[in-house]
Design a protein around this nucleic acid. Structure first.
Lengths: 202, 202, 202, 202
DNA sequence: CATGAATGAGTGTTCATTCAT
DNA sequence: TATGAATGAACACTCATTCAT
């Protein structure tokens, strides 16, 4: 019925739907093949075990996550552009998390329960985002609009950590106080004051 | 072997060890009773099901976490005291997480996969910590050493999120760049610049 | 709290309540001791096992059944008295079964599922009732108002079997068509025609 | 070993053997699969639970019962034919019960202990037999060889009840006094006298 | 005789994985 | 490559019975 070449993709997509709606441990291989409309035995022609299709399902999910997460690679020219670039992912992540809460849950919470390989994979994604922010900050220091002496690596990770604020509401946390725009503007002001170079004396 | 009165505690402790080393879903009741040196049937004299002992195991783990987590209830008198109070939990949390990494993993990562009740419990702990920080900030604004216009609620949650920086290394993340002291001093400087009231013009 | 001498009776009564409301196999010793307000361990001071208390519970139940079941021992003097004596137990049994349906169910249906000893006990009760009816019929033949040539033993058992008609409604069967009085009068007419000696030619 | 198409039937047959020899509650799924020479897990490919295979096992047993139970559908032409038709099932039932005593026990005695659905199923079988007898009687009244004024519905149920006489010996009761033929002839005479229309005056 | 904690064999059920066709 | 029946180890949970106090 489906072209044989994308049986694997078809199964991965079905697994994504099943895993994100039931969680990894609560999902049976039988659920996945049923969702894919494929025979039970066929599963093992494409994946050696249940664990393996989890990677494929997460890949499938991440294909839509990636672009929104990455901040612009062009370094900001001045402080205002910098703040825009730093806060843009907060908005994107919040919206992504609100509409894909089960995927976030799958990646973040199921991962650690399954094995170290998956945990490390998640951590790598997180670290790579931190590095993007780190570069923005390094450039801002060099360009002179950020305070000298900033440790860009530490602050890149601080930025990553701060995204938790906009992710938690999607995972059952309290709604953002004052709404997303207000929270982002507070963060922007916090960053402006916290990171900007002191105003030169007139 | 153990005083009969705390069989329940004995089982909870064993469950804590088992859950933190294998994860909740990968642990069998048989593992717990084996670790406790108790018969299989006895388990159900003390807990009505496997889910119930998870609460007890987490309680057991949290008894040592609680005190270290809470920031001082005395409001800070000036900016330096404030920064000390704000950053102290980072050190405590880092040390706790480094020595109790499996408990953190159990609480943070297993919770969501199990129950909404447990997820909510975790979120409540987190929110309560956010509120403590929020009060510190509110007081600092009133006392005049923090910038007016700060939204203490938002920034309290930002603080909670930032703790992720010192928690991740215990969960398999990269080691803290420059060490804990360096990271904390960077955060302190960030907070000082980001939150302090502008210096009055001489 | 209770006189120690009737602990056994107290347990038997509790067992009767528990067994008749839940069935033997679905009742736990824990249920019985809870209903009796007695400690779990005490049970085995009075009964060697769960099976044994079933006998005691049935004894307890039968104490109220016995009198209503037995037809009058005085032999009937004529055909009308005979028919009254033969049909009276139908009314009694119907009423007993309607108000004690769970006991009937326990005795009749649980018995066979448990062991042959209990089955035989039930059958003995039934046979003893059959013998009572048999004697009535034998006497009627001798007195001349019943047809000669009747096999009183066979017809005694037929009478026992016929009681099933008035027992089934209590066990979930259809209600008696026309009501109990109508059914009994039909049976009486059936017996009159079926058993009476032919009217002497005038 | 067995044609794959009737694994379900194979299991049902094994369950029938197990249930009729041990009773439903005393039989484990493990016993059934062992008797069928099938793996434990296979059971749940064919039945969703233990309760479900009981229905199949009873169906299996009833396939041989059904035909013998049903009285002829052709209405009797005269009193002698009527008595033959009425008593024929007694012989059939007796023989069935003697050779299938454990099935009868399973159906009659286990049913009530299990659930209402099964109890109702048994009662429906019984009622349907009663209706067959009822029709015979109705026809006999119309044809004039049975007494007018008979309530065919009541007497149909009385007939069903009377079959108990020939069923009990298979369940551990005393043997039929005088043998089956004698008992049936006694019942036939009883019915003849009890139901026949009065002989017209010469 | 009273207690209730301890026991452990037994239950029905699930599911990832295999393999003959 | 496709299939789906077959597998069996593992699971959470029950409960009649024992026994030290």
């Amino acid at each position: 019925m489906t072209a044989p070449t994308d049986r694997r993709a078809q199964l991965a997509e079905a697994a994504f739907e099943v895993f994100t709606s039931r969680g990894y441990r609560n999902s049976a291989v039988a659920d996945i093949v049923a969702a894919a409309g494929v025979s039970h035995g066929s599963f093992y022609n494409y994946f050696t075990n249940k664990r393996e299709i989890l990677d494929a399902a997460i890949d499938y999910g991440l294909e839509s996550l990636g672009p929104q997460l990455t901040p612009p690679t062009e370094p900001a020219a001045d402080l205002d552009e910098f703040l825009d670039a730093m806060t843009a992912p907060f908005r994107a992540l919040h919206e992504f998390a609100m509409t894909n809460d089960r995927l976030v849950s799958l990646i973040v919470f199921d991962a650690a329960a399954i094995d170290d390989a998956l945990t490390n994979r998640v951590i790598e994604v997180v670290e790579s985002v931190a590095v993007d922010w780190q570069h923005q900050i390094e450039h801002g220091v060099q360009a002179g609009f950020l305070r000298p002496g900033l440790d860009a690596q530490v602050l890149g990770e601080v930025m990553v950590a701060m995204t938790l604020v906009v992710l938690l509401p999607a995972q059952g946390g309290a709604p953002l106080p004052g709404g997303l725009d207000h929270v982002i503007s507070q963060i922007a002001e916090f960053l402006r004051a916290g990171l900007a170079a002191p105003a030169p004396h007139a």
